[in-house]
Computed example of a mutant assay.
Amino acid sequence: MDLHLTGKRALVCGGSSGLGRAVAEALAAEGAHVALLSRDAAKLQAVADGINATATGRAVIVTADLADHEALLKAVGAAEGLLGGPIEILLNNTGGPPPSGVAGLDPELWRTQFEAMVLSVFRLTDRVLPAMRAAGWGRILNVASSSVVEPIPGLGVSTALRSSIAGWAKTLAVEVAADGITVNTLLPGRIDTPRIASLDQARAAKTGETPEQARAASVVSIPVGRIGAPEEFGAVAAFLASPKAAYVTGSLIRIDGGAIKAI
């Protein structure tokens, strides 16, 4: 299926690894031109080199810390310069906080994580929306978590803050729908990424299991019987970013192998 993404300009946050990398590779395979953003220039360049060697689209890199909002906005301008025009597809993708509950946490921790995980998404989206509205076309994709639908014990901060992204995105989708812009939020379950590996290590340290045992135990609750591949996540994102998904907006898209129990 041709997703008609050839020449579209995309900005992918967290593009150096994991879900962001998978989305960038999927978009570029469909002919999109992708700006990869994260803090690590060396990792970004390695991903960009791989894309440029194999994909029909091309990749460039820009660096910024999502918690540094001024640097982040400058990076958008740099990306637009390298891509030759305004951003048409935005993947909001932030790192997750350390495992924790929610009771009794230092308010400073909440503030720091909110600025990095939530406020950065709001500001970045507001930066690219005017050009999308002027063009009458745009795609906003947000990476959240399956915990938005079914909270995961021990991931309290992540659940709370990613849920705020989901509420914001649903509201924004209504505001910009008439402008030809869709806004959707992706809810990954257990996808084989460095983030999942770190969570397995944290569980192992707490329970006395090995990381391999922790990983195997998690698979038991996944109906398809395995952990998802990043490429599977990237394929869903690429479709939602395409003109063919113009009638899908304001949605929470589960990519979890059926693990979420809620209807």
Score class of each variant (00 low, 15 high):
residue 6 T to N: 14
residue 8 K to Y: 02
residue 15 G to P: 02
residue 15 G to F: 01
residue 20 G to I: 10
residue 20 G to P: 07
residue 23 V to E: 02
residue 23 V to K: 05
residue 29 A to W: 03
residue 33 H to I: 03
residue 36 L to G: 06
residue 45 Q to D: 15
residue 50 G to K: 06
residue 53 A to Q: 14
residue 57 G to V: 05
residue 59 A to L: 13
residue 61 I to N: 09
residue 61 I to M: 08
residue 70 E to H: 15
residue 73 L to E: 10
residue 75 A to M: 03
residue 79 A to W: 05
residue 82 L to D: 11
residue 83 L to K: 13
residue 90 L to Y: 11
residue 90 L to M: 08
residue 90 L to E: 14
residue 91 L to F: 05
residue 106 D to H: 08
residue 109 L to K: 13
residue 110 W to C: 04
residue 113 Q to W: 08
residue 114 F to H: 12
residue 117 M to W: 04
residue 122 F to N: 02
residue 132 M to F: 00
residue 138 G to N: 10
residue 141 L to K: 13
residue 142 N to R: 04
residue 145 S to P: 01
residue 155 L to P: 00
residue 156 G to V: 03
residue 158 S to L: 15
residue 162 R to T: 05
residue 175 E to Q: 07
residue 183 V to H: 10
residue 185 T to E: 13
residue 186 L to E: 09
residue 188 P to N: 14
residue 208 G to M: 10
residue 211 P to S: 07
residue 214 A to F: 12
residue 215 R to W: 07
residue 218 S to Y: 00
residue 218 S to E: 06
residue 223 P to G: 14
residue 226 R to G: 03
residue 226 R to Y: 02
residue 232 E to Q: 12
residue 238 A to V: 05
residue 239 F to W: 11
residue 239 F to P: 01
residue 245 A to S: 06
residue 251 S to W: 08
